[in-house]
């Protein structure tokens, strides 16, 4: 197969069928073809995590996944985390704890943090730091991001 390849992907809950170039990454297709620009481009070598999305239940660096690899899969981007325009608990916690400065890394941070909380309901500080170590923040809000994830987990537990 070369040229444009037809794929079907469920993106943020919506089934979509479109064609992609074999050498285009999931990141490029999300941003350029689907105009989902919340997912950010930075290092392109899987180091910074700005392009983090959830693919089939697991977070990945979308710069290191070819779009064709997602064929038949389910992708969740930052745009899929707020429902009906309402911020998720986690998104609110990021604002309350002061975890957002320039904001460029934040979509990746939030997708990664959301994944962590799906796996571990009440993560320790160490687990949060490890779970988000693949997301660089040059404003270095790491303490605040950790606090936000812990606060969201605590609020979630309180709500249950």
């Amino acid at each position: 197969m070369s040229g444009r390849i037809p794929i079907q992907v469920t993106v943020n809950g919506r089934a979509r069928a479109f064609e992609v170039a074999a050498h285009h990454t999931l990141l490029e297709v999300l941003r350029d073809d689907l105009q989902l620009t919340g997912t950010k481009e930075c290092c392109l070598v899987g180091e910074c995590g700005a392009c983090t999305v959830r693919l089939d239940g697991r977070i990945v660096d979308s710069c290191l996944v070819l779009a064709v690899e997602a064929d038949g899969g389910e992708v969740t981007t930052v745009e899929g985390l707020a429902s009906d325009g309402r911020l998720s608990r986690l998104q609110g916690a990021f604002l309350d704890e002061g975890a957002v400065q320039c904001g460029f890394c934040i979509p990746g941070q939030i997708v990664a943090a959301d994944d962590l909380l799906r796996r571990v309901a009440r993560p320790t500080v160490g687990e949060i730091q490890e779970g988000l170590a693949g997301n660089l923040c040059r404003c270095a809000c790491y303490g605040q991001i950790t606090a936000a994830v812990a606060a969201a987990a605590a609020a979630e537990a309180g709500a249950r």
Binding site: G46, G49, I59, V60, D61, V65, D115, A133, G134, N135
Partner: peptide
Amino acid sequence: VGSVQIRNR
């Protein structure tokens, strides 16, 4: 091996 994102792939 790398970050969570890398280890998932």
